[in-house]
C-alpha cells in the first residue's frame, strides 16, 4: 500500500463513519411532521442534526389545557450537553426556550402554551456540535366539561411581577430537586392590544457560586412559569436571578 492509497483508505474510512452523522439531515422524521423541513432555520447553517431517542420529551398525548401543557425534557443520558433548544413545529411562535445546563444535568420540567396540535421537540447540543433531537406529538383539544380553566388575571399582578417562590428537596426520591415559580404574565404579543411581555433570561447558581443552568425564555412559556430542575452536587441555598424583555430584573434565594 503506498502513501496515497493509504490516505485514501483512511479518508474513505472516515467518510464511512461520518456519513451516518450527516445522514441525520435526511433521516425520516419519526414524528412525520410536514413542517420538519422548515425547522432547519432554527439551527446554524451546516449543523448536524440527529434524531435520538435518548432525548426524551415527556408530555401528555392529549393536552386538555393548551395554556398549560406540561413538558419534561431529559437529555441527561447524552452526557455533557451545552444547550437544549425546545420548539413546537406548528406554534405561531415556534421557539419556546433554550436552556444551558452547567452544574445541573440537562433535565428541566416546565409548561408551555400551544395554539394547536403539534410536535414538541427538544434538540440537545453535545460537545461535538451535534444536535440530538427528540420529541413527541401533543394533540390539543378541549370542550364541554373538558374546557381549559379560565382564571381571570388578578388585578394586582403588577405588584407581584417577578416574585419568586420555590422549594428544594433534600431527602427521599426527589433529593436534589428544585422547583420554582416566577410570577409573570408571559404575554405573547399575539393578542390584539397586548404587546409581548415575557421573561427573557433566568439563571440559577448553587451555594458555591457555580451556575446550575441558564434559561432563555420566549413567549410560549406559560404564564407564571414553574420550573423543575436538579441541583447537582452542592447543597445549600440556590440563587435565582433574571429579567424580562422590558428590563424588569429580579433576584431571590431559595432556601435549602
Amino acid at each position: 500500500m503506498n502513501l496515497m492509497t493509504g490516505i485514501a483508505a483512511v479518508l474513505l474510512a472516515v467518510l464511512a463513519t461520518v456519513r451516518p452523522a450527516l445522514a441525520g439531515q435526511d433521516e425520516v422524521d419519526p414524528l412525520a411532521s410536514p413542517r420538519w423541513a422548515d425547522m432547519r432555520y432554527l439551527f446554524p447553517e451546516g449543523a448536524t442534526l440527529r434524531f435520538d431517542p435518548r432525548v426524551r420529551v415527556l408530555a401528555p398525548a392529549v393536552a386538555e389545557n393548551p395554556l398549560q401543557v406540561p413538558l419534561t425534557v431529559d437529555a441527561s443520558e447524552l452526557g455533557p450537553v451545552s444547550e437544549v433548544l425546545v420548539f413546537a413545529d406548528f406554534n405561531p411562535i415556534v421557539e419556546v426556550m433554550r436552556f444551558f445546563p452547567e452544574a445541573a444535568p440537562a433535565w428541566l420540567g416546565f409548561r408551555i402554551k400551544l395554539q394547536q396540535s403539534t410536535p414538541v421537540r427538544a434538540a440537545a447540543r453535545t460537545a461535538d456540535g451535534v444536535w440530538h433531537v427528540g420529541g413527541t406529538w401533543v394533540t390539543t383539544v378541549g370542550g364541554g366539561c373538558t374546557v381549559p380553566s379560565a382564571k381571570a388575571g388578578s388585578p394586582d399582578w403588577q405588584a407581584r411581577l417577578n416574585q419568586v417562590s420555590g422549594r428544594q428537596w433534600n431527602r427521599g426520591a426527589q433529593a436534589d430537586r428544585i422547583r420554582l415559580r416566577i410570577e409573570h404574565p408571559m404575554d405573547t404579543g399575539l393578542v390584539a392590544g397586548i404587546p409581548a411581555f415575557h421573561l427573557d433570561q433566568v439563571e440559577l447558581l448553587d451555594a458555591a457560586g457555580q451556575r446550575l443552568m441558564r434559561l432563555q425564555l420566549h413567549e410560549p412559556v406559560s404564564e407564571n412559569p414553574v420550573f423543575t430542575l436538579r441541583r447537582g452536587a452542592v447543597a445549600g441555598p440556590v440563587e435565582v436571578r433574571g429579567y424580562d424583555n422590558n428590563g424588569n430584573a429580579f433576584h431571590a434565594r431559595i432556601a435549602p
Binding site: P70, R167, W169, A173
Partner: peptide, 10 residues
C-alpha cells in the same frame, strides 16, 4: 409535597 412536576403527577 414530594416535589413532582405535572407530568410526573399525571
Amino acid at each position: 409535597e414530594e416535589g413532582l412536576d405535572m407530568n410526573e403527577t399525571m
